[in-house]
């Protein structure tokens, strides 16, 4: 049996239940009550800042001038990267999803996607110690770029799995509003399919990835290339893919 509000106290309990998939049954996602933005947006900011903290270590260990300012800037920019990308991509997803007949409301869709970002950043933050550990022993900028791409890639894949699993559960449990029982869980019998546009979410994931990569490129520097003085943003040139290619070249 599921409840609209988490029984555990506080934001930590809410995060724990989200990670364990206890807040994202079909009914819970549809009502959206278990995924309040006032709890999970601060979590996205805190977890993003936490990964950003480890990311900024490279500038600290490199003895860069203004290294502390760089760390603080990265701690701000990392949550901004994820939430900013959501801001850019969410309107088109919601409109197209509604056009294709999904009954998922505006707030419910937004809350689900914020929850997905929280999962993404929670995994990234949990991998932060690995990043910090390698930062202590690595001077190669190229290696640090690739390690960050790999760790954020893993976190991204996990969150995609979370989103697809949630949407799949939603697809098999979509009763009409007047038929909806007061409480439902994923394991209920006689599931019915509904066109919630799972494939559209897959397209959105790709779009989010591309926009996110480019957003990251615009918001750089994150790691802080050696020998380059602190700057909040760099001049806009090139693209994310070109940057990864250059990092591989630089490492070799």
């Amino acid at each position: 049996m599921t409840t609209a509000h988490p029984p555990g106290r506080g934001a930590v309990a809410a995060l724990d239940r989200l990670l364990r998939g206890q807040l994202t049954s079909a009914f819970q996602v549809r009502t959206g009550e278990t995924l309040p933005l006032k709890v999970f947006v601060p979590w996205a900011i805190a977890l993003g800042a936490s990964y950003g903290f480890f990311m900024g270590w490279y500038a600290l260990t490199g003895g860069k001038d203004d290294a502390l300012r760089h760390v603080v800037a990265v701690m701000v920019k990392l949550p901004l990267l994820f939430l900013g990308t959501l801001l850019v991509t969410f309107p088109s997803l919601y409109v197209f999803n509604a056009m294709l007949g999904s009954r998922l409301g505006f707030r419910a869709t937004l809350r689900l996607l914020v929850a997905t970002i929280v999962v993404n950043l929670a995994i990234a933050a949990s991998l932060g110690p690995i990043l910090g550990f390698f930062t202590l022993s690595t001077s190669s900028y190229g290696f640090m770029v690739l390690l960050n791409v790999a760790l954020l890639g893993v976190a991204g894949l996990v969150s995609i799995g979370f989103l697809i699993k949630t949407l799949a559960a939603l697809q098999f449990q979509s009763p009409e509003p007047d038929e909806m029982p007061p409480l439902m869980s994923v394991g209920d019998e006689h599931p019915r399919r509904e066109g919630t546009g799972l494939w559209l979410f897959v397209v959105w994931i790709f779009t989010y990835g591309i926009v996110g990569a480019q957003m990251g490129w615009i918001l750089r520097p994150f790691i802080g290339a050696p020998g380059v003085p602190f700057e909040l943003f760099r001049l806009r040139d090139g693209s994310f893919l070109q940057g990864v290619y250059n990092a591989v070249q630089h490492m070799l």
Binding site: L19, A125, L127
Partner: peptide, 14 residues
Amino acid sequence: VCLPGFFALCSVLG
């Protein structure tokens, strides 16, 4: 170094 990620993944995978 590896346990935090393991714990988070363990949670997400249910």
